[in-house]
Design a protein around this nucleic acid. Structure first.
Lengths: 267, 267
DNA sequence: TATTATTGTAACAAACTGAGACAATAATTA
DNA sequence: TAATTATTGTCTCAGTTTGTTACAATAATA
């Protein structure tokens, strides 16, 4: 009992010292040379956005990422990281590529980040080594999130995908690849389900598709095609107080919930 | 000059000692906890096959895999491994998934493999740790390869995809996923180019598609669709000495060679 | 010279897609 | 209360793609 209290006090004290060795960065807890990065997509009704964090006093922007503990699975590590940043659990996650070039790491930028955050560089030297990173994208409901910066970064914000700041290392390539794969998967998986509230209008759904594809779609063709898939359930009308016919609300049929991760059966 | 000779002699001698510490397994040369595995597809004219190796005296079958050197890129590591096993350079390679569950590694099987091959287990202890593996598939011309086993395995052989032996660890799941992704990519990439000789008949191409999809296709529809893509060049007829009309030989148009890795432009 | 098996292509129907038209309708305005 | 406005849901028609069947061409064999 007593030892518990001491440990807690020590942890609290460590935040007050000049040289931090934050518990979550202790090298022996993690697998070396391996990281993950996440491209967290959200949709604000008009634009597709992703979460970007900025490190303290460095002007460096990066994707939310992290490391894999020795006793946790790769996927659990990513879930843990996304949950820390978004507060969300049970998130739609899709692994899309692993980046392993020799040139992708940037020890001097990492050193600067550690120094600016008062971490002891020597005790965290494993962070300056080369990293191979497994990249995931997440699709989340924009409105349900209030993003939280981690201990190294002082802000985490939504950026529209065509208004990103310049990102460190190869993170711009990672975003580019995430978008490619998301576009490919748009026809195969029920992407909209994860980016919209549970009830939505046909127009909202179309806007999601347009934001992802980066092009406009024909309204009548889109509506016919989506309804033809037989994956939507029609609900009551939505009266928006506008001077025109009210649209119906739709939801994805419940038997499709598990299919959001699966492949669409093409007839 | 002299020191060179000594070094070479020591290396040769090491093969004669009971406890080997093969140069290619020295732990300090490699990134820990990270491996790659390759699903190498070939087509023998009828069946889609993959290369499986069998470890000495263990009855354990596995995918050809390996480790990433500290100073080489992930992709170079895979190329090196595939070249060692097949002798082929400039291979069509596609990364498809990274497997990182906690349960996928099997230290006792690895220990057995090391012991049966007279490796010093203690000096290679890093091999008994957990591994996260990046999986690639390769498409190669079946006839141009005479597979070579590596130092740990005593055979490497082609197996039809529906007649595989039971594989160690999660390698069966890896093969399953490779097939899924290959099937998805069949419509998007020029897969046939890499599995067939440079000149082939329409029937051969159709057989490749059928072997990958695992279903029969309608001859006339297939022919019309492929010719409609405008990616094939027609050459002389092939006289097979059979009592019927001789088929034309085709090749992929040379301006498509770079497109074999790219996405097909859907009209 | 007739037969056989396979190939290349055409013909037609069915299904799907692009583009436009139009009636229905919720709120506003006259 | 009735006309107006903007958007929605659906229909039509033409153009394209796909499934199916048919058939002529043809290399070797009987």
């Amino acid at each position: 009992m007593f030892s518990w209290i001491i440990v807690l006090n020590l942890e609290k004290l460590s935040f007050l010292t000049t040289k931090k060795t934050a518990q979550e960065l202790h090298g022996e807890d993690f697998i070396y040379n391996l990281s993950y990065d996440s491209v967290i997509f959200g949709f604000n009704g008009k634009l597709l956005k992703i979460l970007i964090l900025e490190y303290h006093n460095t002007g460096l922007f990066a994707l939310p990422g992290g490391f894999v503990k020795r006793n946790e699975s790769l996927e659990d590590a990513v879930k843990r990281g996304v949950k820390e940043r978004t507060g969300l659990e049970h998130i739609y996650l899709e692994q899309f590529h692993t980046f392993g070039s020799l040139t992708r790491s940037n020890p001097s930028a990492m050193k600067r980040i550690l120094e600016e955050n008062d971490y002891d560089v020597k005790r965290n030297e494993w962070l300056l080594d080369r990293f191979i990173t497994v990249a995931y994208y997440a699709l989340i409901n924009y409105d349900k999130v209030s993003p939280k910066p981690d201990s190294l970064s002082d802000s985490i914000n939504w950026y529209a995908i065509d208004e990103l700041p310049s990102l460190m290392m190869d993170h711009e390539q990672i975003v580019e690849k995430a978008l490619q794969v998301l576009r490919d998967n748009l026809e195969k998986k029920l992407v909209g389900m994860n980016l919209l509230p549970s009830k939505f209008t046909m127009k909202q759904l179309q806007k999601v598709y347009e934001a992802i594809l980066g092009e406009e779609l024909r309204r009548t063709t889109f509506q016919r095609r989506i309804l033809g898939m037989n994956i939507l359930e029609r609900h009551e009308k939505l009266f928006q107080g506008r001077a025109h016919k009210a649209p119906y609300l739709y939801s994805f049929k419940s038997n499709n919930i598990n299919k959001s991760q699966e492949q669409k059966i093409t007839t």
